[in-house]
Write a protein that binds this DNA or RNA. Structure first.
Lengths: 149, 149
DNA sequence: GATTATTAAATGTATGTACATATATTTGTC
DNA sequence: GACAAATATATGTACATACATTTAATAATC
């Protein structure tokens, strides 16, 4: 559906404004699609993202700082998201022996098992940008990189 | 900066995953740029969006339903965002005479004046997707529309 | 080695998001 | 006109975001 119809706006000032609004709208649309998916597994999107970073580090630990660096949204509060994951026993948290200011965070066996199930379900589900050709997806990335220059 | 460097990830599975991550990341990046801007005027991004919809209606009133329809994020809670705007006296709210279930919301003179100052500042600031050519912006919208098909 | 500065994480507060539920009003049906 | 269904908005709760402040540990400087 064209963006004008999605948000019931008659016309945009120019292609810049239209692309801008479309970008925000489409990203929200994708995030909502994914949220619904993760909810089936008792996770939120940020919780999933952190778990995935921890799996990337496994069996090495990660610190809160490392999580913030790698998260898509730099300003969110990694500490409290780890709280929720710890409450679900998907991660462990213990004071780093070599630097007692820092905290070593590791994904647990239950966390690894959950991510494994998510991988399988994601391969079936196939959501995301699948309506594009591979070349279009590459072109999209090029345009997005250019926006942030 | 290329998306691989932004989020310090070595490689993506394919161009689809890369475009997907890039899309979410870039939209967040744009939103954060704008948030900082609006903060100078004591507004948040959703508050600004609602004010702009109300100006579009002015001098006709809008209802909460109309706001939800027009908002980029359909599921957010328009009622409570209007609460904040009302507290700042940027909008007025009164029971609709012809349908006492509904509420007529109007932008106040102070609200119009604030938006006027924002317009002027936005024209100076020039943020958004300005690094693209007009043709690239149009191409971006085309790709984004296709994602949501 | 005491003092200050820096760093890592946690906490506090206001706002927004997501979704379920509640309250009041209007509409539809018998 | 009584009663059920639909509609418009508000409220409650859990979670996340944004940003300032606090607490504790380490590093740097005198």
């Amino acid at each position: 559906m064209k963006i004008e119809d999605e948000i019931k706006q008659v016309a945009f000032r120019d292609d810049y404004q239209k692309a801008h609004v479309n970008l925000i709208f489409t990203a929200n649309w994708l995030q909502q699609q994914q949220s619904g998916f993760f909810k089936q597994f008792g996770l939120t999107l940020p919780q999933f993202n952190i778990l995935r970073i921890l799996r990337g580090q496994h069996p090495k630990p990660a610190t809160v700082n490392l999580l913030i660096e790698r998260m898509l949204d730099k300003t969110s509060n990694a500490s409290r998201i780890v709280d929720k994951l710890e409450a679900k026993e998907l991660v462990t948290r213990c004071v780093c022996p070599s630097n007692r200011r820092a905290v070593d965070i590791r994904i647990s066996d239950a966390g690894l098992e959950l991510l494994g199930r998510l991988d399988a379900a994601m391969n079936e589900q196939q959501f995301g940008v699948q309506h594009l050709t591979s070349a279009e997806a590459a072109q999209l990335s090029r345009l997005l990189d250019k926006i942030r220059d």
